[in-house]
Design a binder for these strands. Structure first.
Lengths: 214, 214
DNA sequence: TAGATTGTTAATCGATTAACAATC
DNA sequence: TAGATTGTTAATCGATTAACAATC
């Protein structure tokens, strides 16, 4: 548990990957020390918020100095669980499934893609970056036998709930769902429904905001 | 402007696409009338919040009855600007660019993909769903000549800011950026930095939450 | 009319910002 | 030591929830 066993709010949790990413960029630029003020300027947050956020997990800084970038990067990576390995499967080997296979940030950081599944006979048996595409009918058994932790759903929304149910039955710990329809899972399974079109619709809202007239 | 010219908070705006999506699902199920209470149950929100959210834009409901699903769906679609057409280009014709080309929610709703661009000579000249892939050197001129409104960035993070700068120079109104590095744009350009790996890292955080010990 | 459910105001809750003593 | 910057408490701000009169 975190300091004092206080649950960290989702608002903070959702900022952690962003801290991790910006700190990674600082390391690439050989910037090894940073104050909350400077980091805030880069990330578009207040210094106060950064200090509040980080202090949910511990006092990583040093008065008069700021934060050690490499150390903080590692700490946040640890908090996010990025120093562990996660066996994954992707369901749906179309463009999106393949895009994720190649996506940095997925290929790094201990995500171990074990297999892909599809219903399309033309894809089954093929290999993408050494990962075999199997028939979806083999999904449940494979997940059980190989202790798969994360199931990644890249199928159309019509089939996503069914796939999710199969994954839950086969005891995955978490589901990363890219179909544009929220899947429901029991409380003990972690779910992230991504719905990438939502950010596009936010974009069009903002394009038109100034001349909106209801 | 909205009712009383009060700016709607981003918290509300980011829920609008979700309302739109759930209402679309209700229509598919021939449910033509819904109360804030029922909708809240389906979406995991309180009835109160739904009524507050919708009343930022107008009184779409009717006392004693609830909301007309089709009407509300159309209203929210209008608020989101989904009843207009947006000329788009995709930069980066790899898996991710192709995945977006095929993604529902992008293909529908008035997003008109005009062209794709890449640096890979093996892709240039090819066609995806009747969309030609051109050399990235032609991007700026094309965007200017064709009044492109939205640029969609699907290139690695090393090149994303440069592409964004080109798009801004060529007067796009908005950028939808999938590279896992935030691009900066002037205030008058709308930006959505998606960073899909952030939701994955949130997932791993939640997997480990209970046994986190700093 | 009676029941249901909205629109809207008020109350509460939580998240962000400000301030400052502690300390490197 | 003096200057810088943290960790943390208090103040503020904004978002969510509750309550209820209005009304279909």
């Amino acid at each position: 548990m975190q300091r004092n066993s206080v649950k960290v709010s989702m608002a903070v949790v959702r900022r952690l990957p962003k801290y991790h990413r910006y700190l990674g960029e600082l390391i690439e630029k050989d910037i090894l020390r940073i104050s909350s003020k400077e980091l805030g300027k880069i990330m578009g947050l207040t210094a106060s918020q950064i200090r509040q956020d980080l202090n949910c997990f511990g006092g990583f800084g040093q008065q008069g100095y700021g934060y050690n970038v490499v150390e903080l990067y590692k700490e946040i990576g640890h908090i996010l669980g990025l120093d562990k390995e996660y066996k994954c499967v992707i369901i749906g080997a179309g463009n999106l499934g393949q895009a994720i296979t190649n996506y940095e940030g997925f290929r790094r950081e201990g995500f171990k893609l074990m297999a892909m599944f599809d219903i399309n006979p033309r894809l089954i048996g093929n290999t993408i970056r050494d990962i075999k595409i199997s028939d979806i009918s083999e999904l449940e058994e494979y997940v059980v036998d190989n202790d798969i932790v994360i199931g990644i759903i890249c199928v159309p929304k019509e089939n996503s709930q069914e796939i999710a149910d199969t994954l839950v039955k086969a005891n995955v710990r978490a589901i990363w769902n890219f179909s544009p329809s929220d899947v429901k899972v029991p409380e003990d399974v972690v779910i992230e429904n991504v719905a990438i079109n939502e950010s596009l619709y936010t974009l069009t809202y903002l394009i038109n905001e100034d001349n909106l007239d209801i």
